[in-house]
Amino acid sequence: MKILETQSAVLTNYEVQAHLQDMQARYQAQDEAQPNGKPKPSNLDAVMKDVITYLVDENSPLAAPSYYSEEAVKELYARLEKFNLTKAELLMILNLRPKFSALDPIIEEADVRFSEEQLQEIVDIIRDVLGGEDVPVEGYEPAENGDGGSGKKATA
């Protein structure tokens, strides 16, 4: 084993979730095509389940129903560009979807760099693009098949 590059890129939680669910779907299709085939490595199975469970936990911004999509991420970055936030700050904003009171530790020296109005504007943009606890997701009916996906995962 040789490490060629320690950090080739940084991934957001959304990208990891998309990649893992992609893999899961692929393995599922394979199992259906070949019911007697070899199962996937058990260590992979365990870590995949745990990471997906963590990422779509009810307290996570990625929990279904979620506002996250490739377009949403691009839109968020475009609209927050004028604030000159660092890459790390943007990453944490995307992963945590902070409320106003939770912004302070995420943005370094927030009170020096930004006025209260600007911080409020940042929070408004985040809410606008990524949603929040009190923002209903359009076209989502909680009683219907909305959480069928996560239920299936738990029993898989």
């Binding site: 084993m1 040789k2 490490i3 080739s8 890129a9 940084v10 990208e15 070899k38």
Partner: peptide, 21 residues
């Protein structure tokens, strides 16, 4: 919190795995 790491390694495929793509 997640990153990508590039690694080079020698992978050994045993004959019983030849049925897989």
């Amino acid at each position: 919190m997640f990153i990508l790491t590039t690694i080079a390694d020698l992978v050994q495929i045993a004959p019983e795995d030849f049925t897989k793509p």
